[in-house]
């Protein structure tokens, strides 16, 4: 009688007897890679490649119609001493911070209002989205008329009321121009913040508010201790997007002011376009665009850590 050898596992490493080509078509890991390939190809072609090319161009002196050569950090050294570049950085930060803060405040307020029971709720909610769905350039042109130095309806109204004697030069004065583009951006951005936060508010169970009411919470305390903390993850997401969109804004500025007056509203994106495309100095334009990356990464990191804390609060994977 021969003893039947017990199967010995984990002593010998498993080696597939299949030939290499067959393994590529049957092994689960390989199959997964095949399926991911089309999506990966798209991402590489349309996202990674242009990004990489942009970064590479920022290290060359390429111009439109002329091959460039690698010049190291020379573009960045130029920018370091360029006061217009630093003005555009300041403008971008100011534009992003002020517009995002106001968009958040207004959006949250609007979301809380829209979360109440009221007649024609669905229609009002849909109406709130209108500024968001109008193409940016169209709304910019509308604002352009509103801010027009001669025909501005705001100036006209204020004059009729006797508050001012001559038209406000909305887009011709540095500070007025900055305020004007920020207001236009807020008008466009609030619906996105409001509707997203509204979606977040609707995930909060009404019984939590009832429980808090019975626990003795006032309206403000219900907001402070229930609504706000439960909304933080969605606030983190929506404000990240809002900051990213605002920081990289181009259309609105270009349609309203083209960066003027005297570069007072030039953002990094518009300056990059002006230097890179209009002046043809692609390398320098690419360097300005690349300089935006650290700011954007910082914004994403902030929200990422914000959401991480939330996960811990929820007690997932943390026993």
């Amino acid at each position: 009688m021969t003893a039947i050898p017990a199967p010995i596992r984990s002593q010998k490493k498993f080696e597939s007897s299949l030939p290499f080509w067959q393994r590529l078509t049957t092994n689960r890991n390989w199959i997964a890679s095949w399926f991911m390939l089309p999506a990966a190809a798209f991402l590489i072609l349309f996202l990674a490649y242009p990004l990489g090319l942009g970064v590479w161009m920022s290290f060359t002196n390429v111009r439109i119609g002329r091959e460039g050569v690698f010049i190291g950090l020379e573009n960045y050294e130029w920018l370091r001493d360029d006061s217009i570049f630093w003005l555009s950085v300041f403008n971008t930060l100011l534009y992003t911070l002020v517009a995002s803060a106001i968009k958040f405040a207004l959006g949250l307020y609007l979301a809380l209002l829209l979360n109440r029971h009221m007649p024609f709720k669905a229609m009002i909610r849909a109406a709130v989205l209108i500024p968001f769905i109008v193409p940016t350039v169209l709304s910019a042109i509308a604002f352009w008329w509103i801010y027009d130095s001669q025909f501005s309806i705001i100036s006209w109204s204020l004059r009729q009321m006797g508050l001012i004697t001559q038209n406000i030069n909305f887009l011709g004065d540095s500070n007025w121009a900055r305020a004007s583009v920020i207001i236009a951006n807020i008008w466009r951005g609030v619906p996105f913040v409001a509707i997203t936060l509204l979606a977040g508010l609707q995930t909060v169970s009404p019984s939590l508010y009832e429980a808090a009411t019975l626990d003795g919470a006032t309206n403000w305390q219900r907001f402070r201790f229930i609504t706000y903390p439960l909304l933080t993850p969605i606030i983190a997401v929506v404000m990240t997007f809002s900051v990213l969109f605002t920081f990289t804004d181009f259309q609105l500025i270009w349609a309203l002011t083209r960066g003027g007056p005297v570069n007072a509203t030039h953002l990094m994106a518009t300056l990059s376009y002006q230097r890179g495309i209009l002046s043809g100095r692609l390398g320098e334009g690419a360097a300005i665009a690349t300089a935006m990356i650290p700011f954007l990464v910082a914004a994403i990191m902030i929200s990422w850590f914000g959401m991480q804390r939330r996960k811990w609060q929820q007690g997932e994977n943390n026993d």
């Binding site: 939590l208 009832e210 305390q221 903390p229």
Partner: peptide, 26 residues
């Protein structure tokens, strides 16, 4: 009065102790 809800209505962002102490804190 104090009420126990069907879905418990516990505050998900507070610990057990904070949940129980919430009314006292208020």
């Amino acid at each position: 009065i104090a009420m126990v809800f069907q879905n418990y209505a516990l505050y998900p962002h507070m610990t057990v102790a904070q949940n129980m102490g919430f009314s006292l804190k208020l």
